[in-house]
């Protein structure tokens, strides 16, 4: 590196984009970061695998639907390598400890709502359960209270959107009872 300040500034400006600029890294090898690199590489493989199966179609463009996916897969592979280097060098910032319990309540709530909607329990009940679980995740432990508020909110939302806008929401017994009452 030369001592000329102008050159130095220019070098700084035209620095390669792949170094990590934040400079707050831990400096320790990062297993989770390596996992991300592996996941990215896996994604690239999935894209290539998918694109290689497209039938050849003649087109005046001479540019089929598989080319852009290949380009994207290439880009992702490069990013996977860079991510791996970053993780190896410990360039990711330190992370706070993970509250697995809270996260499980939250994800569990969404999963349960999906099952309830597929199972025909209806929007109001599913939404109330999601509300209760999510509130639990954030440390509000009185389940009946949470459920109560959730029911109130989702019933209100249902009435508003079903009857105010005519939006069709997944219906279950509760919804059918309301529709029957309001008919």
């Amino acid at each position: 590196m030369s001592g000329d300040p102008k050159n130095q500034a220019a070098e700084e400006d035209l620095r390669l984009p792949f170094d990590d600029e934040t400079g707050h890294g831990t400096g320790k090898r990062d297993l989770a970061g390596l996992l991300i690199a592996v996941a990215l590489f896996g994604l690239a493989m999935v894209i290539v695998n998918d694109a290689s199966g497209y039938p050849i179609r003649r087109s005046y463009a001479k540019f089929g639907p598989e080319i852009v996916p290949y380009l994207i897969a290439g880009g992702i592979s490069v990013m996977a390598v860079i991510t791996a280097i970053m993780a190896w060098r410990g360039a990711f910032e330190a992370r706070d400890p993970l509250n697995i319990g809270a996260l499980s309540w939250l994800v569990g709530g969404i999963v349960l709502e999906i099952f309830m909607l597929y199972g025909g329990t209806g929007f109001i009940a599913g939404s109330a359960v999601l509300f209760a679980f999510a509130a639990r995740a954030f440390g509000q432990k009185t389940l009946p209270l949470n459920l109560g508020i959730g029911l109130l909110l989702s019933t209100l939302l249902y009435l508003l959107f079903r009857y105010g806008l005519g939006l069709s929401l997944p219906a279950g017994p509760v919804e059918r009872a309301i529709d029957l009452l309001l008919r």
Partner: peptide
């Protein structure tokens, strides 16, 4: 916060 974020999810 518990109710705010639960509400956002709903």
């Amino acid at each position: 916060r518990p109710w705010l974020y639960a509400g956002i999810l709903c």
